[in-house]
Amino acid sequence: MPRACGPLAEALARRAVLLDGGLSNQLAAQGCDLSGGLWSGRVLAERPDQVEAAHTAYARAGAEVLITASYQVGYEAFAARGHDRAETTALLHRSVRLAARAAEAADHEVWVAASVGPYGAVLADGSEYRGRYGLSVRELAAFHRPRIEALLAAGPDVLAVETIPDADEAEALLTVLAETGAPAWLSYTVAAGRTRAGGPLPEAFALAAASPQVIAVGVNCCDPADVLPALRAAAAVTTEPLLAYPNDGSVWNAATGTWHTPEAPPPWPLQAWHAAGARLIGGCCRIGPEHIAALGSLLPDRRP
């Protein structure tokens, strides 16, 4: 069952809501080791106290939604590293519990969003930025179904279906969401006006618009410059609240495991994003609590 706080969808109908920032960069800032292919999932397994501390840092910065450390937790990837199915299920449950504890300790209302990352995330090779894995919609649905069920059993407020690179994977995820009836947001990763796999954005957003489970749709884990064109494409096909939580403009090199960062990134045009329909706004990779606090001070229409 969802946690006992007001539905996020109701808040989004009234005002803008502030998301948290990148979990992995905050864990790294806390001195955690994210090497080995499991990324934040490794910290979830080995140092759950640090995951809760990261969530708490974002809540203290004013974040109203905390996204769990389950993005890269998949049964197959964890089995390859010695975790049996029951252990992986327990980790998925733990991810929700840690975020919920941080939310409950906050001095303002905070929702917990259980992260459902793309199939490519568990490959740990940057595949989520390419998509088109060679799997059918049915195969992708079979991959996502058990971990969505496990996350829902832990009682988050909403599912964060995020960093989705193509419409095929979105279709698979929406199929599973329809089976569960659970509320979710759906967020694509985009570049140059198309999905990361190169598909047209209007068709991708239209898929989400047709799903009664989707409470918001938009983009994440992308260059800030790609946000506004994507929001406008989404607004053309849906009346749902939109969302945006981009990176800082850096580009991830999966081969070297490094970020390439622009020297002087421009400020985010929050007013324009809000005018285009964005109501759920925060940050993704390399956006920390200090950035979220600054966003919160600038975000239009944030409070009731």
Rank of each mutant, 00 (worst) to 15 (best):
D226K: 01
L98Q: 10
A106V: 00
P300D: 13
E139C: 13
E46Q: 11
L299T: 11
C5F: 04
L44K: 00
I67A: 08
A16P: 00
G62A: 12
V176T: 06
T238P: 03
S136L: 01
T89C: 14
H93C: 11
A276N: 07
P304V: 09
I67G: 00
P118T: 10
V43K: 00
L201A: 13
H55M: 11
L173D: 01
P262V: 03
A244I: 01
S24L: 03
P304F: 07
L12R: 12
D84I: 12
W185F: 15
E128C: 11
P266H: 10
R138F: 05
L123M: 13
A69C: 08
E128Q: 14
S70K: 03
G198E: 06
V227Q: 06
L18M: 14
A63E: 02
E128N: 06
L151Q: 14
E139T: 06
G218D: 08
R196L: 14
A210E: 12
L243T: 03
Y71H: 12
G36V: 02
G277V: 04
A210D: 13
H291M: 10
L91D: 12
R286I: 04
C222E: 10
P304R: 13
A208M: 02
A4I: 05
S24G: 13
A160D: 09
A105C: 15
E52V: 04
A178C: 04
V158T: 06
A13T: 07
A178Y: 07
G218S: 11
A172V: 10
L123C: 14
E240Q: 10
L228T: 07
T189I: 11
A28V: 01
S297G: 15
A80N: 13
A86K: 15
S35F: 01
R14H: 05
E46T: 10
Q26A: 11
V137K: 03
